[in-house]
């Protein structure tokens, strides 16, 4: 099975297991919002989801091997 990779940016990282910025796992066929929920990232910490660098809706379902990035709200920096 080809695993998925999940990246959590900004404050989303703070909620990831072990506060890792990136982790691998089999999330194929799950909606990206379900992935975030399973990882413990609360909705208020999420701005949007992107797969392969492109923005996707919360109900987008991952295919095997796809990379998901969960983006947090961006303030001044």
């Amino acid at each position: 099975m080809v695993e998925n990779t999940v990246h959590a940016l900004g404050i989303c990282q703070n909620y990831m297991p072990g506060q890792q910025a990136t982790l691998g796992g089999n999330f194929a066929s799950m909606a990206v919002s379900q992935v975030a929920e399973q990882l413990g990232i609360p909705a208020h910490a999420i701005w949007f989801y992107a797969v392969g660098g492109k923005r996707v809706p919360p109900d987008y379902r991952l295919s095997p091997g796809e990379e998901l990035t969960i983006h947090s709200p961006v303030d001044g920096g």
Partner: peptide, 24 residues
Amino acid sequence: WESMNKSSYEYGTTSVVMSLNASG
């Protein structure tokens, strides 16, 4: 602080590039 600012330690503000890029 680690539960609030871990990403700031790891990447500073540099990850904003990819977030704003993906947002358009």
